[in-house]
Simulated scan of single mutants.
Amino acid sequence: MENKKRVMVEFDFPGMSVKEYDQIWQDLRKAGYEHPKGLIHHAGAPTDKGVKIVDVWESADKFNEFGSALMPVLQKHGVKEPKPSIFPLHYEYNENKKPIM
């Protein structure tokens, strides 16, 4: 049975540059993942250690399905398998929508 509760997924990619991050997105787009199924919000930001990613997904299942496309691209760029933190979403605000609780 599919878990349909939205989740927030957080990744840290130590040592990754924004140039590498951009190249990974370019490769995902070329592979047909310009709009990954189930991805609601995505944000990537440089940190003093690398790049931090925060996503909101329709469900943990949708995020895990995307992993089959993401992992080969990360491996191509020499990125070690990330250890995401996954949290059930409690509250979401989008300026174009009403809050979701």
Score class of each variant (00 low, 15 high):
Glu34Leu: 13
Ala69Leu: 04
His41Lys: 15
Lys37Ala: 10
Leu28Gln: 10
Val79Ser: 03
Ile100Asp: 15
Lys83Cys: 04
Lys52Gly: 11
Ala69Ser: 14
Val79Lys: 10
Gly50Phe: 07
Lys37Gly: 01
Ile24Cys: 04
Ala69Val: 02
Ala31Gln: 12
Glu92Ile: 07
Asn3Lys: 08
Gly32Gln: 07
Lys97Ile: 00
Met1Leu: 13
Lys76Met: 14
Lys97Arg: 12
Lys5Ile: 10
Asn3Leu: 09
Lys98Ala: 14
Gly38Ile: 08
Glu58Leu: 09
Ile100Val: 14
Tyr33Val: 01
Tyr21Ser: 06
Ser68Phe: 00
Ser17Tyr: 04
Gly50Ala: 10
Tyr93Glu: 09
Asp48Pro: 03
Lys98His: 10
Pro36Trp: 05
Pro14His: 04
Gly32Met: 10
Pro88His: 06
Gly67Lys: 02
Glu92Gly: 01
Asp55Met: 05
Lys80Cys: 03
Val54Pro: 00
Phe66Asn: 08
Lys37Leu: 11
Phe11Ser: 02
Glu65Leu: 08
Thr47Glu: 03
Leu89Cys: 12
Glu81Asn: 12
Asp55Gly: 06
Trp25Cys: 06
Pro84His: 11
Phe63Arg: 03
Gly50Trp: 05
Phe11Cys: 00
Pro72His: 13
Glu34His: 04
Lys30Asp: 15
Lys19Asp: 11
Tyr21Asn: 10
Tyr91Met: 14
Leu39His: 03
Met101Thr: 04
Asp61Asn: 09
Ile100Lys: 14
Ile24Asp: 03
His90Leu: 13
Asp12Thr: 04
Glu20His: 07
Gly38Asn: 05
Val18Gly: 00
Val7Ser: 01
Ile86Met: 14
Lys98Cys: 00
Thr47Cys: 05
Lys80Gly: 14
Val7Met: 00
Ser17Asn: 04
Lys62Asp: 09
Gly32Trp: 03
Pro84Lys: 04
Ala45Glu: 03
Pro82Asp: 12
Asp22Asn: 10
Glu58Phe: 07
Tyr91Phe: 12
Glu81Leu: 06
Gln23His: 01
His41Phe: 15
Val7Cys: 00
His41Thr: 14
Ser59Asp: 13
Glu10Lys: 03
Lys5Gly: 12
